[in-house]
Design a protein around this nucleic acid. Structure first.
Length: 895
RNA sequence: GGGCUCUUAGCUCAGUUGGUUUAGAGCGCUACCUUGACACGGUAGAGGUCAGAGGUUCGAAUCCUCUAGGGCCCACCA
């Protein structure tokens, strides 16, 4: 066996092992009746996306769950894929065309869509390649894209089914319109932000000629489309005007003054201009009062033919200025106030959205939402952390219909057809909804049809993801076996976009929930707490991090840092923790292998055939106890989805228990014997525990664990740690008394080390140690581990006995009631020792006072459980004894 | 306007149902150590009235109320 390098070099092994796993098909899941399935579907990243720290957290978490369950014997299937991301992708391709001087509209729809496909083949899915660098064990044979044939079929099928059920309808409604992208946006795609605007007070003259009514508005240009002025019916100031008319300035139209409850009499002047075609509230008022709806802008936000000639063709903001100037000229602008209000922006291009009346397709949500709410409220689906349940509930009970049409070219086209017959009947205006083009119009018999121009919201394909990836609507074995999925790991900001809608779709089309657990991840922020964003340039490139620190280091660090539902402040330097840990694991393995080799050479035999000795050694019993406790607790934490907890426990066990103490004991025991068989068994046991620990670590750090595991033994071709069984906890090996014995032993060693350090004694200086022990069990422990104490405390001799006198000029300590003396004649500085002891006594007396106070409190004695009281009494006893002994030492210091 | 969340060592954060805690970790800091696994390391330290006030309890970082200050989400206030 070649010697392992001194430190772990992730860059040299990661790709090798990833290819090994993938080419051996270890990631692939197939229906297997003998096993329980464990299914995860990836939240499909945008095809335009590149890997961010958010993806790293999200996908590492999924990988931990999947690798862990796979080792537990589940038939795992983690379906990866990408989302076609309508607006985002169209944008990217449009931009690249622009560089060639090509305008989308000029090249035509068909050609453009073709270009997007070309773009996708060339550049799309970068993120998928990057994910492999992270080590994700996705089932790549099942990779899907939301525009794949099968998934597109699913979309069409769903549209038709919902339409036939009356849950999809087409209507004229006020939608959020992006004048730049020329498309409607769903409510969720609009970002509202506070902005400093103005409130303009406009005079609308009464038609009767006597006076005017003043309205306040933030968008004066829309006044050209006003069809009423509304006041609150209870507002006495205006009661006499209701039913009268005003003359709309500039447009010179007469419009009525109406009364509507919506109007807040205390805001502005208490009178509102009503523009039903350009404001959602005004639209509602318009519906209630049968007002005309005048659209005054075109789809680019320019004023159209329904406004006076002089404003036509003006941009909405240019028009705003012009309208204000004209009103002022006519003396109709009363005043202008500064006004902070919230303005909606397009989530893609940040253009101010325009409420706009247009023809759109909608999904009726009420019925779907009621069912989807129920399965979360009754616990069929559990959210982690639970508090998102409330957010979900609030949204689901206040849900509005979902606008699913988008005026884009890239996406799933609405499967609705319009008759183009030469002799249309009135019914021919109604669309025919069908997956395929209808052969003949049922009304006029024509065979000419035009398909709806709109495409569907991207989320209209994502909400089917948990079953469309398995081939739905086709019923097949995969779908039957792998659906429903188990754990969904996603960011809380898409709880409405995606999570809620998947629940609806799952129930509607499969009759079953789409997943059982939803893990909402943390948000990764920079050290100032800002969100990672392109414009701030504060998002590290995970691939750089992997190149510098290694994938395992990144994975472990981010898992360790991210408790469920708390945001994480991240910087690259934090990955040093993971890198150092990987290196620590590496070197522990290196130590064991080096020793085994040395012993094999010494014994001229194959060490692996020598079985481990029975665990009569305390360090063996202890490490087994600690190991099994770690298995138990780590597994339990994973079951609660508390990945950071399990990461911490493994870190502590591997570093502090295994390396800091156990390996040191192993060193001492090997050095302390010439019996080769004994040496073999000591190292074999250590290797075995180490190997089991590697398995526990594997889901977190797949690469380093595989690399070492492959060195640990001669492995056959297709063997991998990722196929090894997840260790089970042998609870019988968890022995509290043995852990207590070890704690005592560690305490003794630490006490001597502390004396050495505080007395400024050189590390190489060997010390005499005298232990005065009055406890039979502890005596046995000390006696059995004398060589370890000698080595680990650097002692030339260790005298152990009952009633040993305190040597003169010695430093002292008390561990669990037993006195430890280190004779230091000629070396001791009495002042240092005195202050050491005084400080310790003072500290203990402080503790003692606390315990005394508790015990003297009659309420405590009366109400606390007996075991708690006993514990406090034991504590008091301990403190007392220790204090007495230390005081004794103090008084005899100079003897 | 509603709702959620956070405030624990210089920094970044753990702390599951209130009691084995003398409140932990990593980084940073101090002293010593290049000892045959590891300086990406070891040993020993310093450092916190758990944001503040009240309450419940025998007992609170942990449960409740309020206050202050961060962050987030939802909502039609023109």
């Amino acid at each position: 066996m070649q010697e392992l390098p001194k430190s772990y070099a992730p860059q040299e092994v990661e790709d090798k092992w990833y290819q090994f796993w993938e080419s051996n098909g270890f990631f692939h899941g197939v229906p297997n009746k003998q096993k329980t399935p464990y299914t995860v579907v990836i939240p499909p990243p945008n095809i335009t996306g590149i890997l961010t720290m958010g993806h790293v957290l999200n996908n590492t978490l999924q990988d931990v769950f999947v690798r862990w369950r796979r080792m537990q014997g589940y038939e795992t299937c983690w379906v990866p894929g990408t989302d076609h991301a309508g607006i985002a992708t169209q944008h990217v391709v449009e931009k690249s065309l622009m560089k060639e001087g090509i305008v989308r509209r000029e090249m035509g729809r068909e050609q453009f869509v073709q270009r997007v496909w070309q773009w996708k083949e060339l550049y799309g899915g970068t993120i998928i390649k990057q994910l492999r660098k992270l080590g994700t064990s996705c089932d790549w044979q099942r990779e899907r894209f939301t525009m794949d044939k099968g998934l597109s079929d699913a979309v069409q099928e769903v549209f038709v089914r919902l339409y036939n059920k009356g849950l999809i309808y087409k209507g004229k409604y006020i939608v959020n319109w992006c004048p730049k992208d020329h498309t409607a946006l769903s409510d969720d795609e609009v970002n509202f932000s506070e902005s400093n605007g103005h409130l303009w007070y406009l005079h609308y003259p009464l038609e009767s000629g006597d006076g005017h009514i003043t309205v306040a508005t933030t968008r004066p240009e829309t006044m050209l489309g006003d069809t009423a002025v509304a006041v609150n019916p209870k507002d006495e100031r205006y009661a006499h005007l209701v039913g009268k008319k005003v003359r709309l300035p500039l447009a010179h139209r007469a419009i009525p003054i109406i009364a509507d409850d919506f109007v807040d009499a205390s805001f502005g002047t208490g009178a509102v201009k009503v523009t039903p075609a350009h404001d959602p509230n005004d639209y509602q008022i318009g519906e209630r009062h049968a007002l005309e709806k005048i659209i005054v802008m075109d789809t680019s936000g320019k004023m159209n033919e329904h406004v006076p000639t002089k404003y036509r063709g003006m941009d909405r903001y240019e028009c705003r200025k012009e309208v204000l100037r004209d009103l002022e000229k006519e003396g109709l602008l009363e005043k202008t106030e500064n006004h902070v209000h919230s303005v909606g922006h397009c989530y893609r291009c940040d253009t101010v959205i325009e409420p706009y009346l247009s023809d759109q397709w909608f999904v009726k949500m009420k019925l779907l939402a009621d069912k989807a709410l129920a399965v979360v409220m009754n616990g069929d689906i559990k959210f982690y952390p639970d508090r998102w349940t409330k957010v979900y509930e609030h949204w689901m009970t206040n849900i509005r219909d979902w606008c699913i049409s988008r005026q884009l070219w890239w996406g799933h086209r609405v499967p609705a057809w319009y008759c183009l017959g030469d002799a249309p009947t009135p019914e021919c205006k109604n669309p025919v909804v069908s997956v395929t083009k209808p052969e003949r119009c049922a009304h006029c018999g024509s065979d000419k049809f035009r398909q709806d121009e709109d495409v569907l919201d991207t989320w209209f394909s994502s909400w089917l993801w948990p079953f469309s990836v398995f081939g739905w609507p086709e019923e097949n074995e995969d779908l039957a076996y792998f659906y429903p999925t188990d754990t969904l790991v996603t960011a809380p900001d898409i709880i409405f976009f995606w999570v809620a809608r998947m629940v609806m779709a799952g129930l509607e089309f499969r009759g079953r929930i789409p997943f059982k657990h939803v893990y909402f991840t943390s948000i990764i922020r920079d050290m100032q707490g800002r969100k990672m964003s392109k414009s701030l340039g504060n998002s590290p490139d995970p691939l750089d991090v992997i190149a510098t620190y290694g994938a395992d280091a990144l994975r472990f660090t981010i898992l360790y840092l991210a408790p469920i539902g708390q945001d994480v402040l991240y910087s690259n330097e934090k990955c040093e923790m993971g890198r150092n840990f990987a290196n620590k694991i590496w070197n522990a393995g290196r130590f064991l292998l080096m020793n085994r080799e040395a012993i094999e050479a010494e014994s001229h035999s194959d060490l692996s055939i020598v079985s481990p000795s029975s665990p009569d050694d305390l360090s063996d019993t202890w490490i087994l106890s600690r190991f099994n406790a770690t298995v138990k607790e780590t597994t339990a934490a994973l079951e609660r989805l508390q990945v950071n907890e399990s990461a911490k426990m493994l870190y502590d066990f591997m570093w502090h228990d295994f390396c800091d103490w156990y390996v040191e004991f192993v060193k001492n025991r090997i050095a302390g014997t010439s019996d080769v068989n004994l040496k073999c068994s000591i190292v074999n046991r250590a290797i075995r525990i180490y190997e089991e620990t590697l398995k526990l670590l594997h889901p977190f750090m797949p690469f380093v664990t595989e690399e070492i595991w492959q060195h640990l033994d001669e492995r056959k071709g297709g063997e991998s740690i990722m196929k090894a069984p997840w260790p089970g906890a042998d609870t019988a090996s968890i022995v509290a008394s043995k852990e207590a014995e070890m704690e005592f032993l560690q305490g003794v060693i630490s006490a001597v080390r502390t004396i050495r350090s505080e007395m400024n004694l050189p590390p190489a200086k060997e010390l005499e140690v005298v232990i005065n022990c009055h406890d039979d069990l502890k005596l046995k422990v000390l006696d059995a581990n004398r060589p370890s104490i000698e080595r680990m405390a650097k002692a030339s001799s260790v005298s152990i006995g009952t009633n040993l006198p305190k040597p003169g000029y010695s430093a002292s300590a008390v561990v669990q009631g037993q006195e430890i003396f280190v004779p230091l004649k000629g070396l001791i500085d009495l002042d240092i020792e005195r202050s050491r002891l005084e400080k310790e006594i003072a500290r203990l007396e402080g503790q003692l006072r606390g315990v005394d106070a508790k015990l003297e409190n009659p309420n405590f004695a009366g109400k606390a459980p007996a075991d708690v009281i006993q514990k406090e009494k034991d504590k008091r006893e301990n403190f007392n004894q220790t204090i007495v002994k230390l005081k004794n030492s103090l008084s005899q210091l100079s003897n």
